[in-house]
Simulated scan of single mutants.
Amino acid sequence: MYKIGTLNKISPVGLARLTDDYTITENVQEANSIILRSYNMHDMEFSPDLLAIGRAGAGVNNIPLDKCAQQGIVVFNAPGANANAVKELCLSGMFLAARNIPAGLEWAKTLAGTEDVGKAVEKGKGQFAGTEIKGKTLGVIGLGAIGAMVANAAESLGMDVIGYDPFLSIKAALSLSNTIKIVDSPKDLYPQCDYITIHVPANDNTKGMIDAAAFAQMKDGVVFLNFARDKLVNDADLLAAIGSGKVKKYVTDFPNDTVIGKEGVIALPHLGASSAEAEDNCAAMAVDQVMDYLENGNIVNSVNMPACSLGPKKGTRVSVISKADAGVLEKVAEVCDGDVINKVRGEYAYTLGEASGDIDGSAIAGEGVIRVRILK
C-alpha cells in the first residue's frame, strides 16, 4: 500500500484516479509521494520514504529539484495540462489592454446612484475608447504548449503573429500554423510587434531577460503580457518603460510589491491555471505519472531525472537512481534476464531492468548508487 500526501487543495478528479493500492495521508512525512500545486517545499525536510513528487501544474520553482535528485526523489510536472486555460487568459489580457476595459469598469462603478446613468455613460464613454487587435502584430516569445496555442488563436482572430523560440520542438513546430513567421532572435521580433507575450520557464538564463535593453528595441506604445513568471521581467526597467511611454500597458498574472497599483499595469491574481478544467487535468496527469513510477518504475515528464520507460511491468523489475558515472547499467544487466534500459540526464542516470524471477538489489548497491527499488 502506497501512501500519498497532498499539499494545497488537489482536484478530487485527479485523486479519484488512485487505485485501492493507495491511501491518502495527512502526514506528509510518512508519504511515499506528495502531490502539490504551489506550496513552497524549499524548507522542507524529506523522509527517506518519499519516492516521488507530483506537481499538478507546469512550473516547479517551488520545489528544490537538486535536493530531490540527490535524495533519489523523482519530481514530475504536468506540462500542457493547463495550456488552454493560460491561453484563454492571455487572450483576455490582450482584450483588457486593447479596449481599456479595467479603467472603464472602475469608472462605471462610480455611476451608481447617478441620475440618468445612461446619459452619463454616453457622455463619458469616449475617455475609454480603445483599439481592436485585428490587424495588429503579436510577438510570441516561447513556443511551447502555451505559446503555440496563443500564437494560433491570435492568428485566427486576425492578428499577424511572429514567434521566437531557440528550443522549438518538432511537436510544437508541427502544431503551429504554417503562416506564422519564426525569427532567430528576439531583436528581430521586438520592433515589429504591437503586442508581445512571453511563455518561457524561469531559470538563470531567463531571469530578468525583459530589461531596459529589450524595451528599447520595442515599438513605442507596445503592450507587454506576462503569463509565464514574474522573474522574467526587470520591474524597475518595466516601470521606467511605462513612464517614458515605450510600454503602454503591462498585463501580468503575477502581482508583486513593485508593480501592483502602478499606472499602466493590469495585474491579475495568478489566475492562469485557475480553471476547474485545468485543475482537473493537472491533478490527473500528476497522479497518473506518480502511480506509473511507483508501480512500474517508469519516468515520464520528470524535471530532475531522465525519461525512461519499459511500459507495464511483466515480472520483477528493478529501478535504480544513480550518478551517471556509477556503472549501474552493467550491474543491472547481470541480475536481469529481461529488458534493460538506461538513460542519463546531466549528472544523474536512471536504469530499469526486468527479470522473470527475483532480483538481488544488494548486488547493485555501491558508490554513486542513490536508490534501488525492487518492484514485484
Rank of each mutant, 00 (worst) to 15 (best):
D204I: 13
D204H: 05
D204S: 12
D204Q: 09
T206P: 12
T206D: 13
T206G: 09
K207P: 05
K207Y: 11
K207H: 10
K207E: 14
K207F: 09
G208L: 07
G208H: 06
M209Y: 04
M209P: 07
M209E: 08
I210M: 13
I210Y: 03
I210R: 01
D211M: 09
D211S: 12
D211N: 15
D211I: 07
D211T: 05
D211H: 04
A212R: 10
A212I: 10
A212F: 06
A212Y: 05
A212K: 15
A212W: 05
A213M: 13
A213T: 13
A213C: 10
A213Q: 15
A213L: 12
A214G: 14
A214H: 15
A214C: 15
F215D: 13
A216I: 10
Q217R: 14
Q217K: 15
Q217I: 09
Q217E: 15
M218E: 10
M218S: 08
M218H: 10
K219N: 08
K219S: 07
K219V: 08
D220F: 06
D220M: 10
D220C: 07
D220P: 01
G221Q: 13
G221Y: 11
V222P: 02
V222N: 03
V222F: 07
V223C: 14
V223T: 14
F224R: 00
L225V: 11
L225K: 04
N226L: 00
N226E: 00
F227I: 06
F227K: 07
F227G: 07
A228C: 02
A228N: 04
R229E: 09
R229M: 07
R229Y: 08
R229L: 06
R229S: 06
D230Y: 00
D230L: 00
D230E: 12
D230K: 01
K231Q: 10
K231I: 04
K231W: 01
K231Y: 01
K231H: 02
L232D: 03
L232R: 02
L232G: 04
L232Q: 04
L232Y: 01
V233R: 00
V233D: 00
N234M: 09
N234G: 12
N234I: 10
N234L: 07
N234S: 12
D235V: 02
D235Y: 02
A236M: 12
A236G: 08
A236W: 01
A236N: 06
D237H: 03
D237T: 06
D237K: 02
D237P: 03
D237F: 02
L238D: 08
L238K: 02
L238Q: 02
L238V: 03
L239I: 12
L239E: 11
L239M: 15
L239S: 11
L239V: 09
L239P: 12
A240Q: 11
A240I: 11
A240H: 11
A240N: 13
A241Q: 06
I242Q: 02
I242G: 01
I242L: 13
I242D: 03
G243I: 09
G243F: 07
S244I: 09
S244P: 08
S244C: 13
S244D: 09
G245K: 03
G245Q: 07
G245Y: 04
G245W: 06
K246I: 05
K246S: 08
